[in-house]
């Protein structure tokens, strides 16, 4: 549901940057989405196909780069990826940590001709 405003945002950003670059066609849109955000690739794709015709992004391929959640241990600063029920620092055994990745949600780049 909330992928609708997200997709509108993507189209606005892409049109803006394509225009500034004087591009005629956008071939790829590279998105970075953290695992902790609640946004679903398929829904963004669905709205993109619905809304992109007639915009500079028409026909572009969406590429989704998913970023895994990463913790930084508060005891020993080791960085690690929690897996399911394993939140234990591999270096010192402490549980959890500060979330240092997984919340990303941005347009990384576009590819144009």
């Amino acid at each position: 549901m909330h992928e609708l405003p997200v997709t509108e945002d993507i189209l606005r950003i892409v049109a803006d940057h394509a225009q500034k670059a004087g591009a005629t066609r956008v071939t790829h849109i590279n998105l970075v989405i953290g695992e902790l955000t609640s946004f679903i690739d398929d829904s963004i794709q669905f709205y993109f196909e619905m809304l992109s015709p007639g915009t500079p992004a028409e026909g572009a391929t969406l590429r989704f780069q998913r970023v895994k959640t990463r913790f930084r241990c508060r005891q020993c600063t080791r960085e690690f990826e929690p897996e399911g029920r394993n939140w234990t620092c591999p270096a010192c055994g402490a549980l959890g940590g500060d979330v240092i990745a997984g919340k990303e949600f941005y347009v990384e780049s576009i590819e144009v001709t």
Binding site: P5, V6, D9, I10, I13, V14, H17, A18, A21, G22, A23, T24, F105, Y106, V107, E108, S109, I110, E111, V112, T113
Partner: peptide
Amino acid sequence: SEQGTPGRIPVVEKLLTANE
């Protein structure tokens, strides 16, 4: 040059900033 250079354009713009 008027058409700009084909290739990759870095953007790095956060989504949903309108809500923020």
